[in-house]
Write a protein that binds this DNA or RNA. Structure first.
Ligand SMILES: [Mn+2]
Ligand SMILES: [Mn+2]
Ligand SMILES: [Mn+2]
Ligand SMILES: [Mn+2]
Lengths: 219, 219
DNA sequence: AATTAATTTTAGATTTGTCTAAAAATAATT
DNA sequence: AATTATTTTTAGACAAATCTAAAATTAATT
């Protein structure tokens, strides 16, 4: 069975919106995919026919085993290509998402496996997100939100909570990226801003919003 | 202006069918693209509207300057990706064409330029075909058909006349590939077969059809 | 030159994915 | 419980790309 790019994008979106419990609503999908609820309804009927998800009128959708498998394969390709773009082709980690949105639909299984091997079987993409292996298994990252990092505990930035251009612009300006070593020096309860220290730099404060968008792991 | 994958495939097909002189006929395009003449007519009208080619009823089509530019950009991507697959990912040169048919439609200009630089600006793809540079210029290969190679003149295989699986299977069996050094030892006028000698191997004969499908350059 | 053959175009239908507007179902408030 | 608001589905239309069958044009033969 093979699928169109549109179908694959729906499956991936459902995968990302799907929490452990509930089903994914028509409106949530429409928002995520920048389309209209009516279009989503049509597509859900079609994907149900293809056995990729369960769906009942007014009850939203939930991926089947098959659907999850497909979603993981697409996410795997997306993140492997992002890793390739940054690691091999020297892209900035803030300019790879759009390109990977296209590359994730290249169908060759052999290409994915060879690419994975060439890259040395990386387990996290340039944004700190885990890359599913060829069986769909992902490493679990022991990452913690920067806002929750204890004072003076050395840690390394390993992920971001969003891929928005605005966030990435701010991080670039502050010279913060994946791998940056830092410690939290002080927290201010007034606005929940925190003071951080990066090696060889003066310490400076960042906003609560920024701190919540950063994930770190202790080193 | 951006184009659909279908439109790009039409432009590339016209580019390959277009000789110095004549226009490309509707039927030739239909055959090349495995579609019907009626579909081709519809698309030619559309591509004319988009100024990618000139077309008059019953007179066939011919790429405009714009159309040629687009075609060269697609061919450039196709051949760069083929080179990447063989050179970097260790694909066999007989298994890359289908994958490149998909990769050639990835739109990022930056990706193409970075890939080109990473590969070291190769000028020929794994089949011996020239790779257009970023301005659309291709090196001219001084290749000659094996059937026309003079006796005892050392030469190197640098291209094939077709990408058919059948041909590639035969070449694999005979251990002939791009870069293989050989000389023609004898020609037989009865069936136009030729006897060739590869370094460290006993000489053997190959058919007229095979010799005509191989391009070599003297070394 | 007239007839036949081949090529190409039109006409009309189909599939996929989308949209708007209206109807139906569900959820939230009074 | 009844009303109102929100969400979701249906109905109908549209654009892109394709197809078959029939008509029109061009090319090849008698
Ligand atoms: Mn991404
Ligand atoms: Mn990512
Ligand atoms: Mn190819
Ligand atoms: Mn090639």
């Amino acid at each position: 069975m093979s699928f169109t790019i549109t179908e694959e994008n729906y499956i991936k979106a459902i995968f990302h919106l799907q929490q452990e419990d509930g089903n994914v609503s028509t409106n949530a999908l429409a928002a995520e995919l920048h389309t209209k609820a009516a279009s989503v309804t049509d597509m859900l009927k079609k994907l149900k026919l293809k056995k990729l998800l369960s769906y009942e009128k007014y009850q939203g959708a939930r991926l089947s085993i098959e659907g999850k498998k497909l979603a993981l394969a697409i996410v795997r390709k997306h993140r492997l290509w992002e890793y390739f773009l940054v690691d091999t082709l020297q892209f900035g980690w803030d300019e790879v998402h759009e390109v990977a949105e296209e590359l994730e639909h290249i169908s060759s299984k052999k290409l994915v496996e060879k690419l994975d091997a060439f890259l040395g079987f990386p387990r996290f993409d340039p944004h700190g997100d885990p890359i599913p292996d060829s069986h769909g298994k992902m490493a679990i990252q022991q990452q913690v939100n920067l806002i929750d990092l204890p004072l003076n505990k050395p840690a390394e930035v390993c992920g971001v909570g969003s891929q928005s251009t605005q966030l990435l612009e701010l991080l670039k300006h502050k010279h913060i990226g994946i791998g940056t070593r830092l410690e939290v020096k002080k927290t201010f309860s007034f606005d929940h801003s925190i003071e951080i220290k990066i090696r060889n730099q003066n310490s400076f404060t960042i906003s609560q919003q920024l701190a919540q968008a950063l994930f770190v792991k202790p080193v």
